[in-house]
Design a protein around this nucleic acid. Structure first.
Lengths: 341, 341
DNA sequence: TTTAGCACTCAATTCCTTCGAGTGCTAATC
DNA sequence: GATTAGCACTCGAAGGAATTGAGTGCTAAA
């Protein structure tokens, strides 16, 4: 049995309807806005069920789309929604407001996404490895401790507390900062530590051990916790899917595992867009959710990604349009951080 | 009518029982562990209800304590719980782990509190105004922007993006940093800006306007958002009080208003401990919650506070013991940041 | 003053009924 | 042969009556 034109149309109508209503779609209501009678639609529905695109919660209920149906819908059937002028203005506004550095922009991106989609948004902070070092400053804290502040070409900054041998005083920390900044300026963070061993010279060579441990600490510092911005987790409580507190709790617990979220986004950052439906997700807590992500780039290199998490029946078309829009805005903003040099 | 000894004992038993079970306490079950018959207890309960200490959800149900009862319980009746060795070790462990600066310690405090109490914890980052400046470093970002990193004697650090006149280059930023650090080291942050105008001299005087705006930006930067660490918000979903998704949503929305949380904690930081029961709370979303806070000190000055938010029937005795314990631990840890100088 | 006894109350639970949206199948129609 | 009208059937949801039981207030006896 094949999916002919009519079956496709009916399936699409069912998915569209279910995304809106969250309750099983019956043949009668469908036939209202269609050229076929409810009986015909019933027959087709029966076929679609056999083919695995639809499921019936119980005998006398309508049909709901299966994950397979969503997959088909996303891959082939949906029509990209277009955002109203109002919406894209609103969205753009979020980016205009927070031009205080890449981190701030990405955080406000998360907020924008969750507020506009009404789903949950996650944004991954850029992978510092691919960025170029612009400035490193060591600031003495207490004896044996210092704060390392790193600034990269993308405007990203990062603080790390590091251990310092006790015989290095504040002045030397400052000299070392300047030496590292001078020597490694414009190098990719990921190559700084390996280059180091070979190119050491001058003042730095006396403190090679320290400098090496310093740089590796900095690169490893970015724990998932600080690397993922989460927003609108509680939006999910709006949906009937989560009117059961236990389901809500599972979802919230999953989404707050920032390490996992980071891994998920990192994986997705090599792709322009991803749509992961229901059980396709690795996370157990997302079995009834879908995750849609988009990557963002700096100088053409993908450095991170952001995404929206919603119920499987989420409005994929709309979400994808929004992500697309945000991706563009984000590109412009990030580029502006680089241009100003 | 007075609250005689027997009434007090019965009231206490009811509160204790209700804290555990969350369901109305009847005279029969109470009489099991008491020297009085259910009838006597019933009579006393009727009196306690007239006096406003108890309420009946409906005629044929047991009694639940009123807010007035909790107030009395907290102020006079409860016996301070004592933590098991295991628990205080566990609690102490959280502090041993994260000695990477005051911020990190406070964040892990929030986590510790929420995990051990199973309620929601909020921790306020210390009010930077009362701390003494130790180091200020300006790091160039792009043309017209720089990152100001401030380190205080309590080990607290803070990043702020500031605007810089375009004619100030990286070298001058560095000189200004050093000059400010030298001149204002050991001054309270709150007095730095006012002192400034009078004591300006040498290099700084040429850039008086810039320096002044810089310092004021730094002091005003601490938005509630970054100043409050929240942990375990979803713990509340465990309790029958929040089995209704809407109530849960209201609670979560309230607790995520970090500005409000900051204001609440700031207000509480002048007191060693506070217990705010139900409608005593300003926040509308906390009408069915209680908030217990404790302050923490650096050099004897209260600089911040932390607290636990739970249902009104929370285990006040236990929570207060834990807060007390944490307060002590925190004092020791914060002190250690100062001593090492 | 305390308590045993008893009638009474009322939410929660259970069981039934009704209702209706929806189905599958069959026979008539295009 | 494809489509559709018609009809019997299914089953969850909604609503109502009966039952249960934990708990009360009151009264009279100890």
């Amino acid at each position: 049995m094949e999916l002919d034109q009519r079956k496709l149309q009916i399936l699409r109508a069912i998915v569209d309807e279910y995304i809106l209503s969250a309750s099983p779609v019956g043949s009668k209501s469908l036939s209202q806005n269609s050229k076929w009678s409810s009986a015909t639609i019933r027959n087709e529905m029966a076929d679609l069920e056999t083919l695995g695109y639809l499921a019936q919660p119980h005998t006398s209920a309508g049909r709901i789309p299966s994950e397979k149906a969503y997959r088909l819908y996303v891959d082939q059937m949906m029509q990209r929604a277009h955002l109203s002028d109002e919406e894209s203005k609103l969205l753009y506004g979020y980016f205009r407001e927070h031009v205080h550095g890449v981190d701030a922009v990405l955080r406000s991106t998360a907020k924008a996404l969750s507020e506009i989609t009404h789903y949950t948004a996650v944004v991954m902070m850029p992978d510092i490895g691919v960025n170029r070092l612009r400035h490193l400053q060591l600031i003495p804290l207490t004896v044996g401790k210092a704060l390392a502040v790193v600034v990269t070409d993308a405007g990203v900054s990062q603080n790390t507390v590091i251990d310092v041998p006790e015989d290095i005083g504040p002045e030397e920390l400052d000299r070392i900062s300047k030496a590292i900044t001078a020597r490694f300026s414009d190098c990719r963070m990921s190559t700084v530590s390996s280059k180091l061993v070979r190119e050491l010279g001058g003042e730095l060579s006396q403190r090679a051990d320290f400098v090496e441990s310093l740089l590796s600490t900095i690169c490893e510092n970015r724990s998932g916790d600080r690397m993922v911005e989460l927003s609108g987790a509680t939006n999910m409580l709006e949906y009937p899917e989560y009117s059961d507190v236990n389901k809500a709790k599972t979802f919230l617990a999953t989404v707050e595992q920032k390490d996992d979220m980071y891994r998920m986004l990192k994986k997705a950052s090599s792709m322009e867009f991803t749509v992961t439906i229901g059980s396709e997700n690795e996370q157990k807590g997302f079995q009834d959710c879908s995750v849609v992500t988009a990557s963002y780039r700096v100088n053409g290199t993908p450095v991170g990604s952001f995404g929206v998490i919603g119920p499987t029946r989420m409005d994929y078309a709309r979400v994808l349009s929004i992500l697309k829009n945000v991706q563009t805005n984000l590109g412009t903003v990030l580029q502006s951080f680089l241009k100003e040099e």
